[in-house]
Simulated scan of single mutants.
Amino acid sequence: MTTRPATRPARERLLTAAGELFYESGIAATGVDAVLQRAGVSPATMYAHFAGKDGLVAAYLEERHQLWRATWDDVLAELDDQVDRLLSLFDAVNRYRQREGNRRGCAFLAAATELPADHPAQPWLQADSLLLTARLRELAVAAGVDDPDEAAATLLLCYDGALARSAREWTTPDLAAGDPVRRARDLAAAWLAARGHVPGT
Rank of each mutant, 00 (worst) to 15 (best):
R64F: 09
A58C: 13
L79F: 02
R64V: 07
A58R: 15
L79V: 02
V75H: 09
G52D: 13
Y60E: 14
D74Y: 05
D54A: 12
A77H: 08
K53A: 01
A59P: 10
Q66S: 04
L61W: 05
W72H: 09
T71R: 14
K53Q: 06
W72P: 03
L61F: 09
L67R: 00
E78H: 14
A59E: 06
L79M: 04
L67Q: 02
Y60S: 14
D74C: 03
G52C: 13
D54Y: 11
D54C: 09
V57G: 15
G55F: 07
L56Y: 05
A77L: 11
G55Q: 10
L56P: 15
V57S: 15
H65I: 06
V57W: 13
L56D: 09
A59K: 03
A59F: 05
R69K: 15
F50H: 07
D73K: 03
Q66H: 11
G52Y: 09
D74E: 02
G55E: 04
R64G: 10
L67W: 00
V75I: 05
K53G: 10
L61V: 02
G55Y: 03
R69C: 03
V57K: 09
L79C: 03
A59W: 08
G55T: 06
A58H: 15
L67A: 00
L76H: 14
V57L: 10
L56M: 08
L79D: 03
W68C: 05
V75K: 08
W68P: 05
K53C: 04
T71N: 11
G55M: 03
L61C: 05
V75R: 10
L61H: 03
F50C: 01
L67H: 00
L79R: 01
Y60D: 12
E63F: 08
L56S: 13
L79G: 04
W68H: 10
E78N: 14
L67E: 01
T71Y: 11
H65D: 04
G55S: 08
F50R: 05
L76V: 13
T71S: 13
K53H: 04
A70I: 00
R64D: 10
Y60P: 14
E78P: 13
R69I: 06
A59H: 07
D74K: 06
D73R: 07
A70N: 00
D54S: 11
Q66Y: 09
E63L: 09
A58Y: 13
G52V: 15
A59Y: 03
E62N: 03
L67V: 00
D54F: 06
W72E: 13
D74T: 04
E78R: 14
E63P: 11
V57H: 11
K53L: 02
D73V: 02
L61S: 06
Y60T: 15
L79A: 05
D74R: 04
Y60K: 12
W68Q: 08
R69D: 13
D54L: 10
L56W: 07
Q66L: 09
W68R: 08
A58S: 12
F50N: 01
K53F: 01
F50A: 01
T71G: 11
V75A: 06
E63A: 10
A70P: 01
D74N: 04
D54G: 08
R69V: 05
E62A: 01
G55C: 09
H65E: 07
A70G: 01
A51S: 07
F50I: 03
F50V: 04
L61Y: 04
E78L: 14
L76S: 12
